[in-house]
Design a protein around this nucleic acid. Structure first.
Lengths: 152, 152
DNA sequence: TAATCTGTAACAACTTACATTACAAATATT
DNA sequence: AATATTTGTAATGTAAGTTGTTACAGATTA
């Protein structure tokens, strides 16, 4: 199982926007912070926008959250960049023998258990809001008592 | 996120072995039931053997479970064919800016939440044993009242 | 009008997944 | 002992997905 870096990048940019609402966070700025190409950020922007989590405007460069950070969970961000469909997450082997008792039933037998696993993942990620992450970030910053620049 | 077909194939062969202990299940037989190449099965065999779930012997062709099916869970099978390491499952973007408050903290901030998600997955898959799946299979077969051959 | 920024298309490099052939090593059968 | 069977594993090819990059059209701001 593998979740692409787009998920952590998506959380990264959402946290920048939620945590520092006065900063102008362009794809260029976010790309430097995330250590990747600005186009990667723009693609993530597009997915987050498509999932109604983010508001972006061409030429403006001022991205804002589409709703309060208390109402955006890790699961929301996950779904924006990755599929939540069980069939997409757990790939079944195809062409199973339909004359074999196991081959003809394995799919319908496993499907509910895979659904349950996805539900468990959803439940766990749904517990964490962007506001939670923001507070954890603020705590970390405070505890480090740092005077570094916010972005660099 | 995507789990390879090896997982469903692994469950498939384990279920064949647990469900029909009197049949001689070679990589060839399993491959025909699973609809894939025998070498794929042998590689899965090797991983299951390495995880101490299966006993195989060259030339023998009689594979058996390494322990009772009541003590083998979906999580055990999952771990045999996929990594259970959080860092392997959730890929982080690298090269984050260390002078940015978000960039320098995103990893340590997200890691515990990713660990929690993996734990949720583990808890869910650990609830289901091979014996459970076997019973569900038997129920299905009984309810279908089929007189087909067991393997075909 | 000029500068800035998002939105996308196009393409290359890299990695991973899956299928297949081939053959050595171990075991069973005769 | 000889032969057939089966696992174990290396090597290779192909397809698909991921990430990085260039390029440019379209929207917005100053």
């Amino acid at each position: 199982m593998r979740v692409s870096t787009q998920f952590s990048i998506a959380v990264h940019v959402m946290l920048m926007i939620a945590g520092f609402p006065d900063e102008k966070i362009t794809s260029e700025v976010a790309a430097e912070s995330a250590g990747c190409n600005p186009v990667i950020i723009r693609n993530v922007f597009a997915k987050l926008k498509n999932a109604n989590l983010l508001i972006t405007k061409s030429g403006k460069g001022k991205t804002t959250l589409a709703r309060p950070d208390t109402e955006i969970t890790l699961w929301d961000i996950y779904c924006a960049v990755e599929s939540e469909e069980t069939e997409e997450i757990f790939k079944f082997h195809q062409n199973t023998s339909q004359t074999c008792m196991v081959g003809s039933n394995i799919h319908s037998l496993l499907a509910p258990h895979f659904d349950s696993a996805v539900a468990a993942l959803k439940a766990d990620f749904s517990k964490v809001t962007l506001a939670d992450l923001k507070e954890e970030l603020y705590d970390t910053i405070r505890s480090k008592a740092s005077e570094d620049e916010v972005f660099g």
